[in-house]
Amino acid sequence: MRLPVSYIAKRFLSFVVVVWVAASVNFIVPRMAPGDPIGAMVARMELQGEVIEDSAELIAAYREKFGLDGSLWDQYVSYLTSAVQFDFGHSLSYFPRPVSDIILDALPYTLGLLAVSIIISFTVGTLLGALIVWLKIGRSGIGLVAPLLLLGSIPQYLLAIILLFVFSFALRWFPSGGAHALGASHDFTLANFIEVARHGALPIMSIVLASAGGWLIGMRSMTITVTRSDYLTLAKAKGLSQLRIFYHYVIRNAILPQVTNLAIAMGSIVGGAILVEVVFTYPGLGSHLLRAINNQDFTVIQGMTYTLVLSVASAVLIVDLLYPWLDPRINYEDQ
Protein backbone atom coordinates (compact mmCIF):
# COMPACT_ATOMS: atom_id res chain seq x y z
CA MET A 1 0.00 0.00 0.00
CA ARG A 2 1.20 3.46 -0.82
CA LEU A 3 1.58 5.46 2.36
CA PRO A 4 -0.96 8.28 2.55
CA VAL A 5 1.60 10.89 3.61
CA SER A 6 -0.65 13.94 3.65
CA TYR A 7 -3.28 12.05 5.64
CA ILE A 8 -0.78 10.95 8.27
CA ALA A 9 0.74 14.43 8.47
CA LYS A 10 -2.69 15.95 9.08
CA ARG A 11 -3.48 13.47 11.85
CA PHE A 12 -0.21 14.19 13.64
CA LEU A 13 -0.79 17.89 13.31
CA SER A 14 -4.24 17.51 14.81
CA PHE A 15 -2.76 15.51 17.70
CA VAL A 16 -0.17 18.19 18.43
CA VAL A 17 -2.73 20.99 18.28
CA VAL A 18 -5.15 19.25 20.64
CA VAL A 19 -2.43 18.60 23.22
CA TRP A 20 -1.16 22.15 22.81
CA VAL A 21 -4.67 23.54 23.41
CA ALA A 22 -4.98 21.46 26.60
CA ALA A 23 -1.61 22.67 27.87
CA SER A 24 -2.43 26.27 27.03
CA VAL A 25 -5.78 26.15 28.80
CA ASN A 26 -3.95 24.81 31.82
CA PHE A 27 -1.53 27.72 31.56
CA ILE A 28 -4.11 30.45 31.08
CA VAL A 29 -6.83 29.43 33.51
CA PRO A 30 -4.92 29.83 36.80
CA ARG A 31 -3.81 33.26 35.62
CA MET A 32 -7.42 34.27 35.14
CA ALA A 33 -8.43 33.02 38.56
CA PRO A 34 -9.24 35.81 40.99
CA GLY A 35 -6.79 36.17 43.88
CA ASP A 36 -4.08 33.69 44.67
CA PRO A 37 -5.50 30.17 44.83
CA ILE A 38 -2.41 28.76 46.46
CA GLY A 39 -2.21 31.35 49.20
CA ALA A 40 -5.92 30.92 49.82
CA MET A 41 -5.53 27.21 50.10
CA VAL A 42 -2.64 27.37 52.54
CA ALA A 43 -4.52 29.88 54.61
CA ARG A 44 -7.62 27.72 54.66
CA MET A 45 -5.66 24.63 55.65
CA GLU A 46 -4.00 26.51 58.47
CA LEU A 47 -7.39 27.78 59.56
CA GLN A 48 -8.58 24.20 59.76
CA GLY A 49 -5.74 23.58 62.14
CA GLU A 50 -3.59 21.61 59.78
CA VAL A 51 0.05 22.16 60.26
CA ILE A 52 1.86 22.78 57.07
CA GLU A 53 5.44 22.37 57.86
CA ASP A 54 6.75 23.24 54.47
CA SER A 55 4.27 25.95 53.65
CA ALA A 56 6.92 28.37 52.47
CA GLU A 57 8.50 25.66 50.39
CA LEU A 58 5.15 24.66 49.04
CA ILE A 59 4.32 28.16 47.96
CA ALA A 60 7.70 28.52 46.33
CA ALA A 61 7.26 25.24 44.48
CA TYR A 62 3.85 26.31 43.33
CA ARG A 63 5.01 29.74 42.19
CA GLU A 64 7.78 28.13 40.27
CA LYS A 65 5.52 25.53 38.72
CA PHE A 66 2.89 28.02 37.73
CA GLY A 67 5.80 30.16 36.67
CA LEU A 68 4.56 33.32 38.22
CA ASP A 69 8.02 34.84 37.80
CA GLY A 70 9.41 36.30 34.59
CA SER A 71 7.57 37.67 31.55
CA LEU A 72 4.33 36.02 30.48
CA TRP A 73 5.99 34.66 27.35
CA ASP A 74 8.87 33.16 29.33
CA GLN A 75 6.36 31.61 31.70
CA TYR A 76 4.45 30.15 28.76
CA VAL A 77 7.52 28.67 27.11
CA SER A 78 8.75 27.12 30.32
CA TYR A 79 5.26 25.77 31.03
CA LEU A 80 4.99 24.12 27.62
CA THR A 81 8.50 22.71 28.00
CA SER A 82 7.64 21.03 31.26
CA ALA A 83 4.30 19.81 29.85
CA VAL A 84 6.17 18.07 27.04
CA GLN A 85 8.47 16.54 29.66
CA PHE A 86 5.41 15.42 31.60
CA ASP A 87 6.53 17.47 34.60
CA PHE A 88 3.73 19.07 36.59
CA GLY A 89 5.63 19.77 39.76
CA HIS A 90 4.54 18.52 43.15
CA SER A 91 1.19 17.64 44.58
CA LEU A 92 -0.06 20.29 46.98
CA SER A 93 -1.96 17.96 49.25
CA TYR A 94 0.64 15.20 49.22
CA PHE A 95 3.66 17.47 49.11
CA PRO A 96 6.37 16.73 48.04
CA ARG A 97 5.08 13.84 45.98
CA PRO A 98 5.50 14.60 42.25
CA VAL A 99 2.26 14.85 40.29
CA SER A 100 3.59 12.56 37.58
CA ASP A 101 4.09 9.90 40.24
CA ILE A 102 0.41 10.00 41.23
CA ILE A 103 -0.64 9.95 37.58
CA LEU A 104 1.53 6.95 36.78
CA ASP A 105 0.00 5.10 39.71
CA ALA A 106 -3.51 5.73 38.50
CA LEU A 107 -3.04 5.55 34.74
CA PRO A 108 -2.91 1.74 34.35
CA TYR A 109 -6.31 1.37 36.00
CA THR A 110 -7.93 3.92 33.74
CA LEU A 111 -6.31 2.59 30.59
CA GLY A 112 -7.21 -0.98 31.51
CA LEU A 113 -10.80 -0.07 32.23
CA LEU A 114 -11.08 1.91 29.00
CA ALA A 115 -9.39 -0.67 26.79
CA VAL A 116 -11.50 -3.57 28.02
CA SER A 117 -14.80 -1.71 27.92
CA ILE A 118 -14.24 -0.02 24.55
CA ILE A 119 -13.25 -3.30 22.93
CA ILE A 120 -16.25 -5.13 24.37
CA SER A 121 -18.83 -2.44 23.65
CA PHE A 122 -17.54 -1.69 20.15
CA THR A 123 -17.36 -5.36 19.19
CA VAL A 124 -20.70 -6.34 20.68
CA GLY A 125 -22.57 -3.27 19.39
CA THR A 126 -21.08 -3.47 15.92
CA LEU A 127 -21.64 -7.19 15.56
CA LEU A 128 -25.24 -7.02 16.82
CA GLY A 129 -25.98 -4.08 14.52
CA ALA A 130 -24.72 -5.99 11.50
CA LEU A 131 -26.41 -9.26 12.48
CA ILE A 132 -29.82 -7.68 12.98
CA VAL A 133 -29.80 -6.54 9.37
CA TRP A 134 -28.02 -9.53 7.88
CA LEU A 135 -30.19 -12.15 9.56
CA LYS A 136 -33.24 -10.04 8.61
CA ILE A 137 -34.47 -9.96 12.17
CA GLY A 138 -36.50 -6.88 11.30
CA ARG A 139 -38.89 -5.12 13.63
CA SER A 140 -38.93 -7.84 16.27
CA GLY A 141 -35.13 -7.68 16.28
CA ILE A 142 -35.23 -4.03 17.15
CA GLY A 143 -37.53 -5.03 19.99
CA LEU A 144 -34.88 -7.45 21.23
CA VAL A 145 -32.20 -4.80 21.37
CA ALA A 146 -34.46 -1.93 22.42
CA PRO A 147 -33.28 -2.14 26.06
CA LEU A 148 -29.71 -1.77 24.82
CA LEU A 149 -30.69 1.27 22.76
CA LEU A 150 -32.44 2.93 25.70
CA LEU A 151 -29.52 2.22 28.02
CA GLY A 152 -27.32 3.73 25.34
CA SER A 153 -29.10 7.04 25.71
CA ILE A 154 -28.43 7.24 29.46
CA PRO A 155 -25.05 8.61 30.57
CA GLN A 156 -22.57 6.03 31.82
CA TYR A 157 -22.47 7.52 35.30
CA LEU A 158 -26.23 7.24 35.85
CA LEU A 159 -26.11 3.62 34.76
CA ALA A 160 -23.16 3.14 37.11
CA ILE A 161 -25.21 4.37 40.07
CA ILE A 162 -28.05 2.01 39.17
CA LEU A 163 -25.70 -0.95 38.80
CA LEU A 164 -24.00 -0.04 42.06
CA PHE A 165 -27.35 -0.08 43.81
CA VAL A 166 -28.66 -3.28 42.23
CA PHE A 167 -25.59 -5.50 42.10
CA SER A 168 -23.50 -4.20 44.92
CA PHE A 169 -25.92 -2.89 47.52
CA ALA A 170 -29.08 -4.94 46.97
CA LEU A 171 -27.75 -8.24 45.60
CA ARG A 172 -24.21 -7.96 47.01
CA TRP A 173 -22.78 -9.81 44.01
CA PHE A 174 -19.96 -7.39 43.39
CA PRO A 175 -17.80 -5.17 45.59
CA SER A 176 -18.83 -1.53 45.76
CA GLY A 177 -15.48 0.01 45.07
CA GLY A 178 -11.74 -0.19 44.59
CA ALA A 179 -9.79 -2.38 42.24
CA HIS A 180 -8.50 -4.98 44.69
CA ALA A 181 -9.57 -6.40 47.99
CA LEU A 182 -8.01 -4.36 50.78
CA GLY A 183 -4.49 -5.42 51.58
CA ALA A 184 -4.35 -7.92 48.71
CA SER A 185 -0.98 -8.68 47.23
CA HIS A 186 -0.25 -7.58 43.69
CA ASP A 187 1.12 -10.96 42.68
CA PHE A 188 -0.23 -12.44 39.52
CA THR A 189 -2.28 -15.36 40.72
CA LEU A 190 -5.61 -16.72 39.57
CA ALA A 191 -7.24 -15.62 42.80
CA ASN A 192 -5.94 -12.10 42.34
CA PHE A 193 -7.06 -12.09 38.75
CA ILE A 194 -10.61 -13.05 39.75
CA GLU A 195 -10.52 -10.37 42.43
CA VAL A 196 -9.50 -7.73 39.90
CA ALA A 197 -12.14 -8.95 37.47
CA ARG A 198 -14.82 -8.81 40.19
CA HIS A 199 -13.87 -5.25 41.03
CA GLY A 200 -13.73 -4.23 37.41
CA ALA A 201 -16.97 -5.93 36.42
CA LEU A 202 -19.44 -3.20 37.37
CA PRO A 203 -17.44 -0.24 35.99
CA ILE A 204 -16.89 -2.13 32.75
CA MET A 205 -20.54 -3.15 32.59
CA SER A 206 -21.62 0.47 33.03
CA ILE A 207 -19.50 1.67 30.14
CA VAL A 208 -20.36 -1.28 27.91
CA LEU A 209 -24.12 -1.13 28.48
CA ALA A 210 -24.16 2.62 28.03
CA SER A 211 -22.22 2.66 24.77
CA ALA A 212 -22.99 -0.60 22.94
CA GLY A 213 -26.38 0.77 21.84
CA GLY A 214 -24.77 3.65 19.99
CA TRP A 215 -22.46 1.35 18.05
CA LEU A 216 -25.43 -0.88 17.30
CA ILE A 217 -27.51 1.90 15.77
CA GLY A 218 -24.63 3.19 13.66
CA MET A 219 -23.72 -0.26 12.35
CA ARG A 220 -27.33 -1.13 11.65
CA SER A 221 -27.93 1.83 9.37
CA MET A 222 -24.57 1.40 7.65
CA THR A 223 -25.24 -2.31 7.09
CA ILE A 224 -28.57 -1.47 5.49
CA THR A 225 -26.73 0.83 3.09
CA VAL A 226 -24.19 -1.88 2.28
CA THR A 227 -26.83 -4.56 1.68
CA ARG A 228 -28.34 -2.30 -0.97
CA SER A 229 -25.02 -1.76 -2.73
CA ASP A 230 -24.16 -3.01 -6.18
CA TYR A 231 -21.15 -4.93 -4.93
CA LEU A 232 -23.31 -7.00 -2.61
CA THR A 233 -25.56 -8.00 -5.52
CA LEU A 234 -22.49 -9.09 -7.45
CA ALA A 235 -21.16 -11.01 -4.45
CA LYS A 236 -24.42 -12.98 -4.31
CA ALA A 237 -24.32 -13.60 -8.04
CA LYS A 238 -20.82 -15.01 -7.57
CA GLY A 239 -22.28 -17.76 -5.43
CA LEU A 240 -20.08 -16.91 -2.45
CA SER A 241 -20.93 -18.39 0.92
CA GLN A 242 -23.06 -16.35 3.30
CA LEU A 243 -20.25 -16.23 5.84
CA ARG A 244 -17.80 -14.91 3.28
CA ILE A 245 -20.21 -12.23 2.07
CA PHE A 246 -21.02 -11.23 5.65
CA TYR A 247 -17.41 -10.84 6.68
CA HIS A 248 -15.59 -9.66 3.54
CA TYR A 249 -18.36 -7.53 2.10
CA VAL A 250 -20.82 -6.45 4.79
CA ILE A 251 -18.65 -6.06 7.89
CA ARG A 252 -15.54 -4.85 6.10
CA ASN A 253 -17.40 -2.00 4.44
CA ALA A 254 -20.00 -1.12 7.05
CA ILE A 255 -17.42 -0.88 9.82
CA LEU A 256 -15.52 1.99 8.20
CA PRO A 257 -17.73 4.85 9.45
CA GLN A 258 -17.86 3.10 12.83
CA VAL A 259 -14.10 3.40 13.14
CA THR A 260 -14.23 7.08 12.19
CA ASN A 261 -16.92 7.57 14.83
CA LEU A 262 -14.82 5.72 17.40
CA ALA A 263 -12.16 8.39 17.01
CA ILE A 264 -14.74 11.17 17.33
CA ALA A 265 -16.41 9.57 20.37
CA MET A 266 -13.13 8.91 22.19
CA GLY A 267 -13.30 12.15 24.17
CA SER A 268 -16.77 11.54 25.53
CA ILE A 269 -16.00 7.88 26.28
CA VAL A 270 -13.00 8.88 28.40
CA GLY A 271 -14.99 11.70 30.01
CA GLY A 272 -17.71 9.20 30.89
CA ALA A 273 -15.24 6.64 32.17
CA ILE A 274 -13.66 8.97 34.72
CA LEU A 275 -17.13 9.60 36.15
CA VAL A 276 -17.78 5.88 36.33
CA GLU A 277 -14.52 5.57 38.29
CA VAL A 278 -15.82 8.23 40.65
CA VAL A 279 -19.04 6.28 41.24
CA PHE A 280 -17.18 3.04 41.97
CA THR A 281 -14.18 4.70 43.64
CA TYR A 282 -12.09 2.84 41.12
CA PRO A 283 -8.50 3.96 41.69
CA GLY A 284 -7.90 5.41 38.23
CA LEU A 285 -7.41 8.98 37.11
CA GLY A 286 -11.08 9.81 37.73
CA SER A 287 -11.04 9.01 41.40
CA HIS A 288 -7.73 10.80 41.89
CA LEU A 289 -9.14 13.75 40.03
CA LEU A 290 -12.13 13.86 42.37
CA ARG A 291 -9.86 13.71 45.41
CA ALA A 292 -7.66 16.46 43.98
CA ILE A 293 -10.74 18.60 43.35
CA ASN A 294 -11.92 18.06 46.92
CA ASN A 295 -8.45 18.92 48.21
CA GLN A 296 -8.13 21.80 45.77
CA ASP A 297 -4.87 20.22 44.71
CA PHE A 298 -4.42 22.33 41.59
CA THR A 299 -1.18 20.84 40.33
CA VAL A 300 -2.72 17.37 40.37
CA ILE A 301 -5.91 18.59 38.67
CA GLN A 302 -3.84 20.11 35.91
CA GLY A 303 -1.67 17.05 35.53
CA MET A 304 -4.73 14.82 35.42
CA THR A 305 -6.66 16.79 32.83
CA TYR A 306 -3.55 17.13 30.70
CA THR A 307 -2.91 13.39 30.91
CA LEU A 308 -6.51 12.61 30.05
CA VAL A 309 -6.47 14.87 27.01
CA LEU A 310 -3.16 13.34 25.98
CA SER A 311 -4.66 9.84 26.32
CA VAL A 312 -7.69 10.80 24.26
CA ALA A 313 -5.55 12.41 21.58
CA SER A 314 -3.24 9.38 21.47
CA ALA A 315 -6.15 6.98 21.19
CA VAL A 316 -7.63 9.08 18.37
CA LEU A 317 -4.26 9.14 16.66
CA ILE A 318 -3.94 5.36 16.88
CA VAL A 319 -7.43 4.84 15.43
CA ASP A 320 -6.75 7.38 12.69
CA LEU A 321 -3.48 5.74 11.77
CA LEU A 322 -5.10 2.31 11.63
CA TYR A 323 -7.84 3.61 9.36
CA PRO A 324 -5.96 3.64 6.03
CA TRP A 325 -5.18 0.00 6.65
CA LEU A 326 -8.94 -0.68 6.70
CA ASP A 327 -9.89 1.67 3.89
CA PRO A 328 -7.45 1.85 0.98
CA ARG A 329 -9.30 4.84 -0.49
CA ILE A 330 -8.24 7.25 2.22
CA ASN A 331 -5.45 8.93 0.28
CA TYR A 332 -7.82 9.81 -2.50
CA GLU A 333 -10.75 11.02 -0.43
CA ASP A 334 -8.39 13.26 1.38
CA GLN A 335 -7.72 15.39 -1.65
Binding site: D230, T233, A237
Partner: peptide, 16 residues
Protein backbone atom coordinates in the same frame (compact mmCIF):
# COMPACT_ATOMS: atom_id res chain seq x y z
CA UNK B 1 -24.18 -18.51 -15.16
CA UNK B 2 -22.15 -15.35 -14.65
CA UNK B 3 -23.20 -11.72 -14.45
CA UNK B 4 -21.66 -8.54 -15.76
CA UNK B 5 -23.48 -6.07 -13.57
CA UNK B 6 -25.13 -2.79 -14.32
CA UNK B 7 -23.15 0.06 -12.86
CA UNK B 8 -19.78 -1.66 -12.77
CA UNK B 9 -18.40 1.52 -11.24
CA UNK B 10 -19.83 0.45 -7.90
CA UNK B 11 -19.99 -3.31 -8.36
CA UNK B 12 -16.53 -4.11 -7.06
CA UNK B 13 -15.86 -4.38 -3.35
CA UNK B 14 -13.99 -1.13 -2.60
CA UNK B 15 -11.82 -2.59 0.17
CA UNK B 16 -10.64 -5.71 -1.64
Amino acid sequence: IALIPQGSMSSLNPVM
